[in-house]
Each structure stands twice: as C-alpha cells, then as structure tokens.
Amino acid sequence: MSTESKEILVGESSQAKPEKKTIVLMASDGDEFVVDVDDITNQSEMIRNLISDMGGTDGLQVPLLNVTAPVLAKLLELFNVSNKNDDDEEVTQKVKELMEAELNMMIDVLGAANYIEATSFFDLSCKVLADKFKGMSVEEVREFLNIECDFTEEELQQIHAENAWAFD
C-alpha cells in the first residue's frame, strides 16, 4: 500500500491504516478513541504497563470506566499539546484557560489523568489548580470550587477551636 499521502491516511477514519501503531481507548459511555501508541504511552504509565503486560498492542482496547467521552477527548487534546511541545509552558497555559472557562471539566480531566497515571500532566494540572487557590480564604476556596459547606455553625466553631493553632 502506498504510504505517500500520510495526511489522508491519518485523517480518514475507517479505512485509514497509519504506519504508526494505535490502540483503542473506550470511554465510560462506550465511545471509542483511536490513539497513537507512542503518544499515549509517552503520557500514561498505566497504559504503558498494560501494553507491556499484554505483550503488544494488537487489537488492544482499553476500557476507561471512570472517564466520559468529553473528558477523554479534552484530555487527549491536551496530551497532543504536551507531546508537541518540549517544555510545559504551552500546555500549562491551555490547562489554565480550561480552568478559567470550565472548572468542572478541568477537574474531571485532572481526575482522568490521575486514573490513567499520566503523572507529569497530572502534576502540572494539580499545580495550576493549587496556584489558583493559594492564599484564598476558606470561603473563597469554597466558592471557587463549588463546595457546599455541610457543617453546622457549631461544628465550624468546634473545628476552629480545635485548630486554633492554625487559624489565630
């Protein structure tokens, strides 16, 4: 088979047969994502280990029970940014933008990165999030993260008293 028009081979879905090896990631809702083996193993330790345990990539389908399709799509999009750039600047910027625009999506992506053990991307996302609420008051953090306070006023006072050393 001719390999001249790589662009088309990569872009056309069904009969595409790229030279590169691929595997299929299945989102929790059953959607399938075909990903380049090098790209995904570059990021995910879990998939790297899985491939080495299975002894190859042929026909490999990886069900990701905790990750929905939109989240997986966003995660793969960010992996692409990360794989394309040598330093983390560009991908950090993208994660920040995502956090500002859609915080819940950003946290879901962070959770998915943790789930598939994409350690460096996960660390980077954690840092972006931590930097955001560094120095915020408890109320500000709660509001920023949409956390509902399920303590009674009494309980709050009790925690405050217990941890007076921290809140003086």
Binding site: V10, G11, S13, S14, A16, P18, K20, T22, G30, D31, E32, F33, V34, V35, D36, D39, I40, T68, A69, P70, A73, L76, E77, F79, N80, N83, K84, N104, M105, D108, N146
Partner: peptide, 24 residues
Amino acid sequence: MDRMFATKSKVSKVKFCRSEPLEE
C-alpha cells in the same frame, strides 16, 4: 460509534452528545 484519531498532528472532530455537567 464515534471514532477518533488522536495523533501527534491532529485530533479529528467528533460530535458528542454531551451530558453537560451541572456547572454548580
């Protein structure tokens, strides 16, 4: 079934029936 290529160069667009998470 949605299929998607994620390669070094591009991620092809897929239409999702997105179950929008509650913003709150």
